[in-house]
Design a protein around this nucleic acid. Sequence first.
DNA 1: TTTGCACTGTTAAAGTAATAACAAACTATG
DNA 2: CATAGTTTGTTATTACTTTAACAGTGCAAA
Lengths: 212, 212
Amino acid sequence: MKQELIKKIPHKTIERLSQYRRALLLCYDKGQTYIFSHEIANIQHITAVQVRRDLMLIGYSGNLRRGYNIKDLIDLISEIIDNPDGQKVAVFGMGNLGRALSKYFKDRREKLSIVAGFDVNPDKVGKSYYGVPCFHIDDAKEIIAREGIKIGIITVPGAYAVETAKLLVEYGIKGILNYTPTPVEVPEGIFLEEYDMVTSLEKVAFYVKEAK
Amino acid sequence: MKQELIKKIPHKTIERLSQYRRALLLCYDKGQTYIFSHEIANIQHITAVQVRRDLMLIGYSGNLRRGYNIKDLIDLISEIIDNPDGQKVAVFGMGNLGRALSKYFKDRREKLSIVAGFDVNPDKVGKSYYGVPCFHIDDAKEIIAREGIKIGIITVPGAYAVETAKLLVEYGIKGILNYTPTPVEVPEGIFLEEYDMVTSLEKVAFYVKEAK
DNA sequence: TTTGCACTGTTAAAGTAATAACAAACTATG
DNA sequence: CATAGTTTGTTATTACTTTAACAGTGCAAA
Ligand SMILES: NC(=O)c1ccc[n+]([C@@H]2O[C@H](COP(=O)([O-])OP(=O)(O)OC[C@H]3O[C@@H](n4cnc5c(N)ncnc54)[C@H](O)[C@@H]3O)[C@@H](O)[C@H]2O)c1
Ligand SMILES: NC(=O)c1ccc[n+]([C@@H]2O[C@H](COP(=O)([O-])OP(=O)(O)OC[C@H]3O[C@@H](n4cnc5c(N)ncnc54)[C@H](O)[C@@H]3O)[C@@H](O)[C@H]2O)c1
């Protein structure tokens, strides 16, 4: 896969590739070897055209009669979205959400693992949650550098989101996933993804109200 | 606000309105009475043009010299996105994520409250988590009808997401927020919002890898 | 009074993403 | 061997979203 090509892949396609891979892994585990675009589309509830277009963008060619080779496709998607040396993630704020995420992501992806949590609460620091050790935020700089952590998930209370994000960037984090309802700002070159659960729920509520 | 106009508001604008309101409530609590589009934009890290465009779409007019009246704007947004009689929400699957959400949303919005949780685990049924009572899924039909619950958040294991969604629709739920990595399908007229945390994290990982 | 500034509100353009359309290839079948 | 039926791969079109451009307005200060 050429570097040039990858740069041109739309964000939405990257998201779908992650989802295709997960669906494909399930099929692979069931012993299926080939799959048609419309089968992938059915699982993901999108159109077959979109699947084919996404696969075109990553330069994968299927077999006209049998469709796509599941193993090959999984490998190609993995080659695109995974880092061969793995990537380490840390959770900032080991509250309810932080701990839920720690447990959930534990051993879920070979190339993407949560290796540390950080908090300010002395009751939490020093403990381990589902195999993820919790450190004091004051030790973050050293641990991030030592472990080579490049990705941070922010689950501190909203009021501390901005300062936390600033710290992370300072300490060398290159990608942030912010689950706080408070938007944060990052300098050029740092990737930021924000998701606000309250907004999602309010959106659902709005459209439910409208449908009446 | 005319019904016709509301129908034309883009989904993305609805999401931002929810976020504007939250930011405005903070300003209001601090005693601020007026705000400029560029101030809202700064808080949300978007452009002032987008803010003005969104407000144009909901038909709100500001004051040329002082900007927008915070109280009035909060009220208008609330009129648009809130249901005057309130809306009841239920969580399906009182695991780590379900409980985190239950706690978090408890008493956070006047017009939007989680009133019940459902699970199959006998250890959880009958208990109450942060004020949200947990019932057996077998009683869902009756409780949904009795309480008039119209919105469901799905946090069961992925393998049960599809059947859960089907049940909810059958029982009269009109809007679903699915946090499971498994896509579900709903009939026409039911609003569905899906969010996949694994995909978000993998997306961040991808762009971090690319930035190297 | 008039000129300049800092806003708002709206229309126009650009950018991004999804959908449709269709040619090409392969296979099974008569 | 021709033909119908599928499926892929690509280009064209349409829809959606953001960004840009700019006219209009009120105020302050010269
Ligand atoms: N729990 C949910 O379901 C949910 C839903 C939507 C949004 N959120 C958001 O996620 C964030 C966390 O939610 P939660 O329910 O887990 O809250 P929580 O209060 O349970 O956890 C917050 C944790 O952050 C720690 N903390 C506080 N300041 C810190 C700092 N400066 N550095 C490091 N750690 C710090 C606290 O000690 C605590 O452990 C909040 O911003 C919340 O708005 C949570
Ligand atoms: N925890 C996270 O941070 C996280 C992150 C991303 C995605 N998710 C997704 O959210 C969902 C829940 O995650 P979790 O960590 O809370 O899991 P969990 O195992 O802690 O909770 C699942 C709960 O659902 C209940 N359940 C099982 N089958 C059910 C059924 N048919 N009806 C009702 N309840 C049922 C279980 O008893 C359990 O209490 C999963 O699909 C997971 O993929 C969770």
